[in-house]
Write a protein that binds this DNA or RNA. Structure first.
Lengths: 102, 102
DNA sequence: CGAAGACATAGGTACTTAGCTATATAGCTC
DNA sequence: GAGCTATATAGCTAAGTACCTATGTCTTCG
């Protein structure tokens, strides 16, 4: 049994984090354009996510860090912004692990 | 987004519960024969699981109830025993949900 | 340069979870 | 029926999680 699975499942065991992953599947459908980064190519900035989640920014940051540690999203710092996007390749690999090991 | 996913992932976000699911994939490989129920057809009784997990029986019961509420295992009461086994059909369906929604 | 904005970190509180012991319930077995 | 066994429930404590506010750091912009 792969030993990263508990952390992966813990990351996914949160309605807010699942919601973020769903929004990030099609960022343009859910967020306004950004000035210094492309929603799809670069990711979505923390303040947008915090606002849409209706939580404070540090709370959003914490959720995003959990997702990042689980390998579900990547972050990219550009100037004063941090953009988060799904790591689609890794997500595919994780799904395969789940299909195999569960 | 399916609303049962958080509870499912929470159930899976535990090394002990993942271990139980793994053992139950091939009960004969991991548990001695039982007197009043077949390991494969009926499932594995709580005391066996508690012993192998190295936790007390009420703790094991709690874990198994979490797995059952998530639809991953079913329980079957036979006399004084409660046997738990994987719900393979449901597990397949849950894997499909994960593949689709994640 | 100074102010404002974006993000991360620190620290506190409320809630949840995982383990335990003690006890209740129900079925065997003699 | 008495006593034993298997399981469930109740209730406790310790640890983890999710939110918040306050603050620090870095970047941009006037």
């Amino acid at each position: 049994m792969s030993d990263f699975l508990p952390a992966l499942f813990a990351a996914l065991a949160s309605p807010r984090r699942l919601q973020v992953l769903e929004w990030l599947r099609d960022p343009r459908a859910h967020f306004p354009p950004q000035r210094d980064g492309d929603l799809v190519d670069d990711g979505v900035c923390v303040v947008f996510l915090a606002r849409k989640l209706r939580v404070r920014q540090p709370t959003a940051t914490a959720h995003l860090q959990v997702l990042a540690r689980a390998g579900l999203v990547t972050s990219k710092r550009v100037g004063q912004w941090t953009f988060y996007k799904r790591d689609e390749a890794r997500i595919r690999a994780l799904k395969r692990s789940i299909s195999r090991d569960l």
